[in-house]
Design a protein around this nucleic acid. Structure first.
Lengths: 94, 94
DNA sequence: AATAGCTATCGTAATTTTACGATAAGAAAC
DNA sequence: GTTTCTTATCGTAAAATTACGATAGCTATT
């Protein structure tokens, strides 16, 4: 059943979106098109390690991806998975 | 900032959607337009108390509402909040 | 080779989530 | 009034989440 797969995927993405900090990160990324961890640490009222942890979850959910630009890591939205997520939510709310 | 309110709201709704069982419940509700707890217990592979717990979370997030039809409780989607959630996600993914 | 800068990971504690069985609550039927 | 039916709530245990400081890793620079 691809329906069940979609359900699992939708739930996983939703879970990744289920924290205000992660929403803010994604909105920031959407505005800036890309950013480094430090940019977020400057903007968000939480520690560097916690920011990194949230980034990890977004990456695990496939919503963002990181590119190593030593000594920094450049994050941006994973457009392919982003589109898929958008579609899943559209279908769900339709 | 209404933006922060929207962020909080979006995260809250997303969190409520962040479990496959709750997605299934909402899909079921969308198909049937309404249902009782027992209907879901028959369909889902989890116990009655767990179903009730998931319903509670969906209700807390405002996505569904229950109407007492003794001795049952009739659940349906909260259309007003559902529309709002739909809009929040649309704006977010736009 | 040593230092400096940036970020992930580790270790940890507090809180939340998820699941279950058992129990309570409410109204209808007998 | 007792029983029956349906569902919420309680109590509980295991697992996951969230947060932090401290530490490690990786480059580039000095």
């Amino acid at each position: 059943m691809t329906l069940d797969k979609d359900t699992e995927r939708l739930a996983k993405v939703a879970k990744a979106l289920g924290h205000p900090t992660r929403i803010r990160i994604l909105k920031y990324l959407d505005n800036q098109s890309h950013c480094f961890t430090g940019d977020l640490v400057d903007v968000l009222p939480i520690s560097q390690s916690t920011v990194s942890q949230h980034l990890k979850e977004l990456k695990n959910a496939g919503l963002i991806k990181g590119e190593v630009k030593p000594p920094k890591i450049k994050y941006c939205i994973d457009q392919k998975n982003w589109k898929q997520a958008k579609t899943l939510f559209e279908d769900f709310f339709k």
